[in-house]
Design a protein around this nucleic acid. Structure first.
Lengths: 342, 342
DNA sequence: CTGTTAGCGCATTCAT
DNA sequence: ATGAATGCGCTAACAG
């Protein structure tokens, strides 16, 4: 049944050239005579040849594969990243090897080992690599590594992201400027969300009741979180959420309770998810260029594969506060923070 | 800089055993003496050895890799599938190689070739393989292939899914039973969505204005679609949408226009996305077990790798209509269709 | 421009 | 239970 598929040797034989000429005709057509090239092409068609990249990679040390590690495939903030990564790499002939960690350091370490075993040409990790052991192994592997989404002053190799603390403090400042006295926060349980909430709380100062939401951060948990906050703080005027979906849940629960947004309760989210501009009211949020980060990571990896040595290995892509109706904005304003390279 | 990493030969040397004993100590520990096993373990630690699976796979014909091809990573209906696939495979030591097609047959064919080149142990395709050429190549490869999400009477190999036409006609029947006279449909542009809408229109009969939404099917486009339908049919009573996000957009636009749901307008979606139970009103929808399909696909592939020959290669996982507030339901009802194997 | 030679790192024969 | 030889399919180096 499993008729063994054609190898390059079969192609060479059918084309009447040597093995290596067939190899070159496919991987480096320019250095081969037009005649030979053509005959090899035909032989490929005739035999239905599909190259075996395990063999090629073993010899050449290039697997044309890049590993992508994410805490969760369905965490919506990371989708644009993975998407951009996948398509940009594919365009240049690289395939993505996917790994999931569930925010668990053990699984992360295991996933990284599984990846390294498969000899990728580079590794992209969403978030910072968590265990020192894994960091050491990555360094030893000598592979190009990009840590994404969060900045590190001591990255394994390269780092592309933004400051979550700064996002939080920007929002804290914004809430202060609005003069709200009774505010609360709804935060996802993951480290980055906590960091943003921490920045918010610190900058806002005073007493801020916080509802912690375990993953996934969906509409339902946003609704429950508002209920929880209102019990702690009945005079609540404004809520800062670590995702647009949670903010949408707060919006929904507020509506169900007959509270007007933003008059009775102001709400802001994070992520500038596609729906947040079109809800009623539209959601004030923080925009982060996920797709841009994915593209940048792909570029950095591929550049490195082609021998460019980067002087610039820590890139802050910044973020942007987008004011919309849910905090009384008109939807036109938008302020940039931390853009640019350092 | 790139100090060449340790190979199994180095480990064997450090452990004072032969190459092959080291190999066995790692891949088949039981057939090796406890003493040897232990010394190899220590040598692995000492040298920081990480196996090279390109080499192993080349020899053994098992790459412990499975290819997953999806129309789009961020198409939410497919997220549970990819997620389940990734984690179930990882648990058994398989890694997922990701490919995207954007619903384009050319890109699909290219992605499949890219995959086959990397010698996966199996291939999972979300949707049916579109070109005859690609189908032929897959068959020739001899690899286990699962086509997911849609049923085929002539699959490349195995098929796991449900009938989209039947989903549509079930909804058409439901709308009829409700006695609504002026109904419309909002449909995504992809083939499966069109199939569902076709089933709906045919079973409902009569004149059904349809708004076609180009991807991505997000909240905004759902809002616009309702606006479009209301122009064509001002007396519109009920709308059938091909995704919950579109339904949510319709809900939102209806609210913005002061229409009450379901009294002035009934709405249903598709996918039972996590938010649809918690919107106000909650959304009537069709549940499909994406995660289950992903798991099943993973299982079928792995079984086949272990030599089980399947007699059962076409599996209908069915679907379930979930009646909620947006069509006047209480949220308790739910009817199953097409469950079971055939 | 083409071919010959020599491995990449490992696992599957066989033998002991 | 262990080891020696062989080759998976391909490409990097050299030579012609």
């Amino acid at each position: 049944m499993k008729l063994k598929s054609a190898t390059l040797r079969d192609v060479a034989q059918a084309a009447g050239v040597s093995l290596i000429t067939a190899s070159r005709a496919l991987s480096n057509p320019d250095i081969v005579s037009a005649k030979a090239r053509e005959r090899v092409q035909q032989a490929v068609e005739a035999t239905g040849y599909i190259p075996n990249m395990l063999a090629g990679g073993l010899k050449s040390k290039r697997s044309l594969t890049v590993a992508g590690i994410t805490p969760g495939l369905s965490v919506t903030e990371f989708l644009p990243i993975m998407q951009a990564l996948t398509s940009d790499l594919a365009r240049e002939g690289y395939q993505l090897l996917l790994g999931e960690t569930g925010y668990d350091p053990e699984r992360e370490a295991a996933a990284l080992d599984a990846m390294i075993s498969r000899q990728p040409d580079g590794i992209v990790v969403v978030g910072l690599v968590q265990t020192e052991r894994a960091r050491a192994r990555l360094r030893r592997s000598g592979l190009p590594v990009v840590e994404l989404w969060e900045l590190s002053d001591r990255p394994v190799d390269m780092s592309v992201g933004f400051s979550h603390l700064k996002v939080g403090s920007t929002l804290g400042g914004y809430f202060l400027s609005k003069g709200w006295k009774h505010v609360g926060a709804v935060t996802g349980a993951d480290p980055r969300a906590r960091l943003r909430t921490e920045g918010f709380r610190t900058t806002y100062g005073g007493d801020v009741p916080i509802a912690v939401v375990r993953p996934p951060s969906n509409l339902e948990r946003g609704r429950r979180a508002l209920a929880e906050l209102l019990e702690k703080s009945p005079k609540l005027q404004a809520v800062c959420c670590t995702s647009d979906m949670l903010a949408n849940g707060v919006l929904t629960e507020a509506r169900a309770r007959g509270m007007r947004v933003p008059q009775d309760l102001a709400v802001c989210g994070f992520g500038n998810t596609d729906f947040s501009e079109y809800t009623v009211p539209s959601i004030t949020t923080v925009h982060v260029d996920g797709a841009g980060m994915g593209r940048l990571a792909a570029q950095l990896i591929m550049d490195r594969c082609r021998g460019k040595t980067e002087e610039q290995s820590i890139i802050d892509v910044g973020f942007r506060l987008i004011e919309r109706e849910s905090t009384g904005g008109e939807g036109a304003d938008s302020t940039s923070h931390g853009l640019g390279y350092r």
